[in-house]
């Protein structure tokens, strides 16, 4: 576990001294405010809740989480530091989890920095804080799942921009089937049983279920299994790069 801790602390240190990480936080918070108050018509709705914010969260995370994940491994490979890291007595699992947890902490910090929105709705009325908390948990799970996808994308190339595009494309594949537009298109083209089955693989559908304030086991299991599957795939890629036969 000393290896995991060392990698986690190094990544957090690198985040603190890298302008990109701060930019990520600032852009996320600015976009969250813009989406909530301008695009989401927060005041026109006349409701003291954060629905306007959480409706945009999946798309914000889709754009920003790959940015947090793209550099994790692609840059290590490009700069040659991956060789240095893998020559240390740090297991591939510890290295993977250390980097993943550090990036997840940034995603969590970005979500936490939207707390002024929560203060605002509480000042304006009496929102269901339980539902808001559940939606934040859903956002974190969605961010963690997209980050696991981005981690795998980052391990499959030595170019950070390519990793970003790959993670974005995979994230879109996970989100789009849950949108009403795609569901309608699928309903028109496929047998009746298939569109709901496709929707069950959409992160958006499971996120929206949690956003309503209901923490169902299938939704939690979906996110946890998705995270585990992508991290497992990442581990296999990393083990290959670490010289495993």
């Amino acid at each position: 576990m000393s290896g995991l801790r060392a990698v986690l602390l190094r990544e957090l240190y690198a985040g603190l001294v890298t302008p990109l990480a701060w930019m990520f936080l600032v852009v996320f918070v600015l976009l969250a405010g813009l989406c909530t108050f301008v695009l989401g018509d927060f005041f026109a709705r006349g409701q003291a809740d954060l629905t306007a914010f959480f409706d945009f969260v999946p798309w914000l995370l889709l754009v920003l989480v790959p940015a947090a994940g793209m550099r994790q491994w692609a840059e290590e490979r490009q700069a040659g530091t991956l060789e240095l890291l893998l020559a240390l007595p740090v297991t591939p699992l510890a290295a993977l989890l250390g980097k993943y947890l550090a990036a997840l902490l940034y995603v969590a910090l970005a979500l936490a920095l939207t707390f002024p929105l929560w203060l605002t709705v509480n000042a304006l009325g009496h929102p269901d804080n339980g539902a808001i908390l559940a939606a934040y948990l859903g956002s974190l799970l969605l961010g963690a799942a997209l980050l696991a996808v981005a981690t795998c994308a980052s391990l499959s190339t030595r170019s950070a921009p390519v990793a970003y595009v790959l993670a974005l494309a995979l994230g879109l594949l996970y989100l789009l089937p849950g949108t009403p537009q795609v569901q309608r298109a699928l309903a028109a083209a496929l047998p009746a049983a298939l569109p709901p089955a496709v929707a069950r693989f959409s992160m958006l559908v499971h996120f929206q279920a949690i956003q309503r304030g209901v923490l169902d086991f299938p939704d939690l299991a979906f996110f946890l299994l998705t995270i585990a599957a992508w991290l497992m795939a990442s581990l296999l890629l990393l083990r290959r790069q670490a010289g495993a036969p």
Binding site: A14, T18, A79, G80, T81, E83, L84, A87
Partner: peptide
């Protein structure tokens, strides 16, 4: 390693 790679930041 070859090229002495280090974490620049």
């Amino acid at each position: 390693p070859e090229g002495a790679p280090l974490y620049g930041e």
